[in-house]
Amino acid sequence: MTEVKDLEALFQARIDAEQKIEPRDWMPEKYRKNLVRQVSQHAHSEVVGMLPEGNWITRAPNLRRKAILLAKVQDEAGHGLYLYSACETLGVTRESTIDDLLSGRAKYSSIFNYPTLTWADIGAIGWLVDGAAIMNQVMLTRTSYGPYARAMVRICKEESFHQRQGYEIMAVLSKGKPEQKAMAQDALNRWWWPSLMMFGPHDSESAHTAESMKWKIKRESNDELRQKFIDRTVQQAEVIGLTVPDPDLKWNEERGHYDHGEIDWKEFWNVVEGNGPCNHERMKARITAHENGRWVREAAAAHASKKTKKKQAA
C-alpha cells in the first residue's frame, strides 16, 4: 500500500514538473484546504464587490457609463459563479461556502469595506482595485490547480477590460472641470493605500505564503506583486496628471523600482478584523439578500420537485 508520505512526494513531484492537479487527483488535505480558503475567498470578494460598485449604477452620469457599469457588475456575479463552481470541484457545496461567508468564518477582500463616495470612486476601483487584482490573477492563471487556473484565464480577460474602463473614467475626470479633477484626485487619495494593502502582509509576515509557493498555488510573493503594481500605476497616474499620495515615493535607479512609504498595517488589520468603514453594511447587505431570498429559493425547489413527481406519475 502506498503511504501518504509517498503520495505527498509524488504530488510534489507533479507540481515541480508543472503538471496541473485535477479534481480527481489525490492531493494532500492541506493543499485542498488552502485552495478552498483561497478560491472561496475570491468568490466571496467578487460577490461582495458588487455592492460598492452597484451603489453607483442608478446614479451613473450618462447612459454609456451606466451600461458599462452594469455589464461590469454582471461580470463580477459571473466570476462569483465560476469560482463557487471551482470550489465545488474541491468537495464543498455552494451553500456551505456561502454559509461560511454569512457566519463570518470566511473572509472576502478587505478593499470592499471601503465606501464609494463619489463617481470618481468607480473609476478608482476599476483602475486601482481591478488593476491590483489583475496582478494577482494573471499569476493565478498558472496556478497548480487546473479548474482554478482555467477560471482565471476567463476572468483575467474581463478584468483587464474593467481596469481600462476605470482608468478611462479617471482620465476623463482629470481633463474635465476643476471639480471633476478634484474628485478624481480625492478618489486616488482614498483608494491608493487600501489598494496596496490588497496584496496582503509583507512576505515575512504572511501566514500562507511559504506553503502556497511550495505548491505553486501562488507563484509570486505579496511584496513582488505589490512592487509590480506600484511601478506600473505610478506612471499611469503621471500620464493623467494625478498625484499618488505618498511623499516617500521615489524612483530608485539602482533597484529599477519605485521606493515607497510604509503601509499603515494598523489600518489593514483593523479592517480585516471587521472594523473598516463598511464591514458591517456589506455583511448586512449579503445576509439580508440571503434571508429575503429564502422563500424564492424554497419556491423554486418546491416547484421543481412537483414537476419531477408529475413526470414520474405520467
Binding site: M50, A289, N292
Partner: peptide
C-alpha cells in the same frame, strides 16, 4: 438595476442585471 448585488440567488442577480 436597484437589485444589483441584492438578488435572491446569484443566477437571478445575473438575470436581472
Amino acid at each position: 438595476s436597484e437589485w444589483c448585488g441584492h438578488g435572491p440567488v446569484l443566477e437571478e442577480d445575473i438575470a436581472l442585471t
